[in-house]
Structures are given as C-alpha cells and as structure tokens.
Design a binder for these strands. Structure first.
Length: 425
RNA sequence: AGAGAGGUGUCCGAGUGGUUGAAGGAGCACGCCUGGAAAGUGUGUAUACCGAAAGGUAUCGAGGGUUCGAAUCCCUUCCUCUCUGCCA
C-alpha cells in the first residue's frame, strides 16, 4: 500500500511513476473520492463531537439530579443524522481503500523502464554456459526413463503439473533443501523458521497477493477461508504483522523451507513440459526485516546470498534487473537470478529477490521502534528465493549430466547424499 | 468436539453504562541526587486521521446491536488458557 499522504499531496507524480510499470491511475476519480471523503469526514466528526459533548452534559445533569428531558429532546435527531453521515463515509472509504489496496508499489528510480521481460537488463553474469561434448538432454529426457521423475504417476494421483520423484532423485531433492538451509543459517546470518503452509486472508493481503491475485492461489473448501501458501514469503513476512520490533533486533533475517502452491492461472500452455512450472514445488526462502535506511544495501546482500547458493553448486547464472513492467505487484525493485539450462540452451529464472520498501509493512502494520525518536515506524521488508528447489534440481540434472546419462552430484551436496556420488541410469 | 475462564496501551494489569484515552506498575526518555553507577526521586511516554494552531474524531480481539452516551449490557465470530474427549 502506498502512503496516503503522498497520494493527497503529490498524486500526479505517483500516477507518473505507476505509469512506468503500466498501471493507469485514474487521478480525477481518486481526487473526487478523496474530496468527498474529506467533506464527509469533517461532517461526521462534527456531529460526533456534538453528540459527545451533549451526552456528557446529560451525564453531568443526571449526576446532579436535574431534569434531563430537555437535553434528551435536543439530541434526539442527532443520531439519525450521524448514522446517515457515517454510512456515506464508510462507503467512500471502502471505495478508496479498494483502490489503494489494488495499487502496485512505486518502482525505485534505479529500475529499468519497460513493460515486458524484453526490457529486463543484465547486471552481471557468473560462469559460462556449460559446454558438453555431446548433445545435452533436458531434465525430462534425463529423469523419466528410470522414473527418477514420474510425471505420469503424478498425473494419475492428482493431475497435470505435479511430479513424483523416486529413490536417489528424491534424496537429491531433499539434499538441496538441507544444503540451502544450512548455508543461509551458518554463513549468511539467517534464523531458520517453520511456519504454517496455510494462511488466512489477512496474511495474503499483507504481502499483496490479495485482493488482486486470488486466482493464482489455491483456497481451501469449508468455512476456514484459508489458502495454501504460494510462497513462504507470506507466512514468514507476516510474522511481523501488527508487531513492533525492537531496533536492537534489526535486521531480522529469516530463512524457511516450505512447499509452495500456485494455481498457475493464466499460464496455460507455458512451460508445460517437465518441472519448470508446477502447482506444487519446494522453495527455501529468505526474508529480511530492516530499517528503512538499510533496505537497498540489504537487497544487494540478499541477492548475493542467493547467488552464493548457485556459486557453491557451480551453476552458471546471470543477474537480471527486472524492468518496471515485469516486476511483481509489491516490489520496488527486483533482481532475478537466471540459471543456465543446457537442455533448453537458455537462462531460466531460479530466484527472485525484491525490496518492497514500506509497501508490505504499511499493509500489515509491521513496525520497528526507532530509538532516536522513541516512535514506532514502518520497517522495510525484502525477500528472495534461495532457491527454488525444483528448478535447482532441473539445473543440476542438465548441467551435471554425463554422456552415459548419469548425473554427477555437486561436491557441496555429497555430505547429504549418504555415499551416493552419481545417479546411475 | 463438550464444559468453564479470558482477550484492555511497548509489556503486566485495574476498570460492569456517564467528566476513562483509559488507574497502578514495569520498561523507556529527560532531569535531580552521585566522583561515577545502582538505589531513590520528579516529569514525560499509544496509534491513525482532520487542522496552520487551538483543538477535534476514531481505536479497549473483530463485526453487529441496545442507548442521549458502551472498554463496561446483548448477539455473532475469531483467538488464548484450564478440564474432559479424540488424535499424529
């Protein structure tokens, strides 16, 4: 959510910045609602003030044993007027709030202009695309003959866009999770957390998935109103919802492994092959809660932490700065890490690291106590994948494949593999 | 799932219809005291919105209702705790 003060004082520049990411703000409509709100709010408050003071007088008079009937008559019509004003005000405020909750974040000045992924900018590159002296297979060709990956079985159990993994492949998948969690906790200063995989709608509003993107989520039937989490970002960032964090505890760094559930509405036909785009996948997430002045530095560090995972796995990648139009709803700036996939001869997204500045914090009232002012102030939130497990597995299969169809296990994973050094066909 | 008890400010906790935005305490800030600190002591200390300010309005889990007036009464709902049941 954007700062309402900013919208009141400088809506034109807000509209201009939002236009950069392809969002058209109806300035006139907003201003009209805003001025109605102001008038109605003043009216309502005056009526309330009148009612309060008169009611107090009635209290006093009664205490002194005076006749209160004349006073009661005086107030008799006030209630109706007040109710009318209030309900009008509520309606206007609901409408304003809907607009406010549907407005995306302002892109940071350093974000490249542009409306599609064509306009994303490569920031740096690590390693060179893996050279194989034979025709590379993709992860489906590598994984399915031995049922390491079994998409048909998953389709029987559930439907499309799910996978069953068997044997050492399932173990390698688990090893990746352990490796990433251990790396973030032991070298990058994150605290591991375990959280619910279902959340309520307040949490989803807090991080920005609701109200606009409900079709991307799996909601539960029954009357709980719960949703399966699309990312650990939701429960982990919401740990700070309605909290005031002591500045001595800042920055807060959480890492968390969870499954993620996404309906992938609107991506029918995209990435239908293999496990690039699944309804259920695992991810190790990093979340940071920082003081506002530290958040841009934190974004660089957090991105570095995600990069370190790829470097330790010796997977070639590049860092892309997303252009304004390609960023997620809540982000002020996003770096995507794209890993090289020999099977596709392309770089594919494997991590997304964003600074949300105070956008999520304002939605969820996540604050820190500034010891200089003594006041609670909005903090800044960041998160990044570190990394998406399924896609990392794909990258390992494709980059570590041997001519005989076996898969070498990356050195850093060996200690999690119980003596398995190679997946043999 | 059944029975009971609760949800109040940064925290603990009082408050069962009227001058209560809310006693008291802790914490925190500033001052006094001290060679310095602790102790002691004085003052201050919620958030949001409107307003140049004075001031006003809202907020005592959430939503609704009764009333001139609700933290306080009624209804609904969520959550926590205790006991019983069930269960990995």
């Amino acid at each position: 959510m954007l700062d309402q003060k900013l919208l009141r004082t400088d809506i034109d520049s807000v509209a201009k910045q939002l236009a950069v990411r392809g969002y058209q703000l109806d300035v006139d409509a907003f201003n009209e609602l805003e001025s109605q709100r102001k008038t109605l709010q003043m009216q309502t408050q005056e009526l309330q003030s009148e009612r309060n003071s008169k009611s107090k007088n009635i209290g006093k008079a009664k205490a002194q044993g005076e006749d209160i009937q004349p006073l009661l008559d005086e107030v008799s019509t006030l209630g109706d007027k007040l109710d009318a004003a209030k309900s009008q005000l509520d309606e206007i405020q609901d409408r304003l709030n809907d607009i406010l909750m549907s407005m995306p974040n302002l892109p940071h000045e350093s974000v490249p202009a542009g409306l599609s992924e064509e306009d994303n900018v490569e920031i740096r590159k690590w390693g060179e695309p893996t050279q194989l002296n034979f025709e590379p297979k993709d992860h489906v060709e590598l994984g399915t003959p031995r049922q390491w990956l079994d998409f048909e079985m998953a389709a029987k159990l559930t439907g499309s866009r799910f996978v069953v993994m068997n044997g050492d492949m399932a173990r390698l998948h688990r090893a990746l999770i352990q490796f990433m969690l251990d790396l973030h906790t032991s070298e990058h200063g994150y605290q591991e957390v375990y959280v619910p995989y279902m959340v309520n709608s307040d949490s989803l509003r807090g991080t920005g998935q609701l109200p606009k993107f409900e079709e991307d989520l799996f909601g539960l039937t029954g009357d709980s109103g719960y949703y399966l989490i699309p990312t650990a970002e939701v429960p982990v960032t919401n740990l700070a919802r309605d909290e005031i964090i002591d500045d001595k505890q800042m920055p807060v760094r959480y890492t968390c492994h969870t499954p993620c559930f996404r309906s992938e509405a609107g991506s029918y036909g995209r990435d239908t092959r293999g496990m690039i785009r699944q309804h259920q996948f695992e991810k190790v997430e990093m979340v940071q809660l920082v003081k506002p002045e530290d958040s841009w530095q934190a974004l660089e560090e957090l991105t570095g932490h995600a990069e370190n995972v790829l470097q330790k796995l010796e997977l070639p990648y590049r860092v892309m700065a997303l252009c304004a139009g390609d960023m997620g709803f809540s982000a002020a700036k996003t770096y995507d890490l794209e890993v090289w996939l020999p099977g596709q001869q392309a770089y594919r997204e494997i991590s997304s690291c964003s600074n949300f500045v105070d956008f999520q914090a304002r939605r969820m009232s996540a604050r820190w106590r500034n010891s200089e002012t003594g006041k609670p102030e909005l903090l800044h939130t960041l998160n990044g994948s570190g990394l998406a497990i399924g896609r990392t597995l794909v990258a390992i299969l494709e980059n570590y494949q041997q001519e005989d169809g076996s898969i070498r296990i990356p050195d850093v994973l060996l200690k999690y593999m119980g003596g398995v050094e190679r997946l043999l066909p």
